[in-house]
Structures are given as structure tokens and as C-alpha cells.
């Protein structure tokens, strides 16, 4: 009996330090965010008071919130499929043993380890009107300069491009590993049946890559709601909030306008989005488990 008890105690003692840190910096702040979203922001000597759903009502009538939510949706719908498609294309190419395979893999993967805040400065130059790289190349074909980041028609598109550039090479390595695990006999069998390369990809490779695609999808979806570093460099959310994403708006409200209660309410929205992604993940994984 004492042996059993010491077993439980040792187990708890081992996990306790990590649990304490998680409680202090994840569980508690998540709950506190929820509670604070029903209180007002303390100002000077006036303490916070309970205001019920006021912050949420304010949110519903806040055009910037709706703009940020809409932008974030577009950002997700742009970055997630594009990153997945490019990652797959890169993996297929690197897997095909083209000339300079190692150099190709390195070129695709390098953005993963570069600081976003640093490389965004270089993209800033690429997007500069007239003498930026993009307009210099377009100038060769006689095109007029265009304010890529200064126009609300293209600014969000540029923010999406930089995000895809940053994460596609990271996702590539998972597709590459999965492709290399497909037994070569499958390709032989398919070719004996006379399948074209496209048929082989669609009927054999793509279904076998499904678990990888799910993994990449979930990660890309989470990234779509927390990748904001490049917004700080490229646009600061402008022009006219055309590139304000949810987390960036939370930063502005919480640390520029110091309206912490409203920032808490906005954070709750972001947490709900992340919880939805988690629900999708577990829903799909559980359904997949039925096949095993």
C-alpha cells in the first residue's frame, strides 16, 4: 500500500513543476481573459467594474473588428491551400531527384529558419513602388509602377504571399518524408496496370499522403491566426485596416490604446477560433481511427 502511494506521489512530483508553469501562463490567463472580457478597463483611480456583455456589444458594432475578422478569414483561405499545394509541389520535385536536389531542398527550406521580422524588411523592398524589385521587373515589360502595400487592393495579397513563402518549405519536409515512405512496388504495380503519372498521383500517392495533409492543414490553419510579425513591418495593418489581422488588432487595442478589457474580449474570439480548429482536428482524427 505504501509502495502504491509513493508511486502516485512520485508521478505527481515529476509533473508538478511543468504543470505549475502551464497553469500560471496558459490555463490561468485563458480563464482570466474570459472573466476580464465581462469587466471594464480600469482607468487611473477608477477600478474595473462588471459590465456584462458590453465589450461584446461594442465588438459587434466595431467596424475594425469585422474588418480584422474578414481579413483573417481571407488570409487563412489564401495561405492554407496555397502553402499546402506549394509544399506538395516542392516535395514531389525534390523527391524526383532533379539536378541539384540538395540545393533545391535547401532553397525551399531556408525561409523556415530566418526571422520573419528580418525577412519582411527585404520583402518590403521588393514591394516598394518604382525601384523595388517587383516593379523593376515589371518595368522591363513596360508596366507602370504600383503601390503594392499602399493600395487596399493588393496589400493583403502581399501579406499572404510573404506568409506562404515563409511556411511552404517547412511543410514540404513532411510531404517529402511521407513520399519516401511509399513502397516502390506500388509504382511498379500501377505502371503495369498502365496508369498515367497523374492517375498514379491521384489514386495512389495523394490518398496515402492524406494523414500528412491533415497534419499540415491543422498547422497552417493555426499559423493563419497567429502569424502577424510581418504585418508589423510591411503595413502596420494599413492602408485603412486592409491588412489588420485579429492578433494584430488585439495588440493594437491592448498595447497601443491600452483598452485591456476590450482586448480580452477580442482574445476570447481568437481562442474560440483556435478551439474550433482543435475540434476539427480531433473530429477528423477520430474518424480516421475507425479505419484502423
Amino acid at each position: 500500500m505504501t509502495r502504491r502511494l509513493s508511486h502516485h506521489v512520485t508521478g505527481w512530483l515529476l509533473v508538478l513543476p511543468a504543470m505549475a508553469f502551464l497553469a500560471l501562463f496558459t490555463h490561468w490567463p485563458a480563464l482570466a481573459t474570459f472573466v476580464d472580457s465581462f469587466w471594464s478597463t480600469p482607468k487611473g483611480k477608477r477600478p474595473a467594474r462588471f459590465v456584462g456583455p458590453d465589450n461584446y456589444q461594442h465588438m459587434l458594432s466595431d467596424p475594425v473588428f469585422w474588418k480584422a475578422a474578414w481579413n483573417n478569414l481571407i488570409f487563412a483561405l489564401g495561405t492554407v491551400p496555397l502553402s499546402i499545394a506549394l509544399a506538395l509541389l516542392m516535395a514531389v520535385w525534390v523527391n524526383d531527384r532533379l539536378k541539384g536536389q540538395t540545393a533545391l531542398r535547401m532553397a525551399y527550406f531556408t525561409p523556415t529558419i530566418l526571422p520573419m521580422i528580418a525577412v519582411a524588411n527585404i520583402w518590403l523592398f521588393f514591394f516598394t513602388p518604382s525601384y523595388g524589385l517587383l516593379d523593376q521587373i515589371r518595368g522591363l515589360f513596360g508596366a507602370q509602377p504600383w503601390p503594392w502595400l499602399g493600395s487596399d487592393q493588393t496589400a493583403l495579397f502581399c501579406v499572404i504571399v510573404v506568409a506562404v513563402w515563409k511556411e511552404a518549405g517547412f511543410f514540404m519536409i513532411f510531404y517529402l518524408a511521407a513520399l519516401q515512405q511509399i513502397p516502390p512496388t506500388l509504382a511498379e504495380a500501377a505502371s503495369l496496370e498502365g496508369a498515367s503519372r497523374w492517375t498514379y498521383f491521384r489514386r495512389v500517392q495523394w490518398p496515402l499522403l492524406m494523414p500528412t495533409t491533415l497534419f499540415v492543414f491543422v498547422n497552417a490553419a493555426i499559423n493563419a491566426f497567429r502569424m502577424v510579425d510581418h504585418v508589423f513591418v510591411l503595413t502596420h495593418g494599413g492602408p485603412d485596416n486592409a491588412t489588420t489581422l485579429l492578433l494584430y488588432y488585439i495588440y493594437e487595442v491592448g498595447f497601443k490604446f491600452w483598452d485591456t478589457a476590450y482586448a480580452a474580449a477580442l482574445t476570447v474570439v481568437l481562442l474560440v477560433v483556435l478551439a474550433l480548429i482543435a475540434a476539427i482536428q480531433f473530429g477528423v482524427i477520430e474518424r480516421r481511427a475507425h479505419y484502423r
Binding site: 485563458a30 481573459t33 497567429r226
Partner: peptide, 9 residues
């Protein structure tokens, strides 16, 4: 994403 509360802590 918990920047507001963690800053308070």
C-alpha cells in the same frame, strides 16, 4: 495569443 493577461502577470 495570451499576450494581454501574460503582460499583466
Amino acid at each position: 495569443v495570451l499576450i494581454v493577461e501574460n503582460y499583466r502577470t
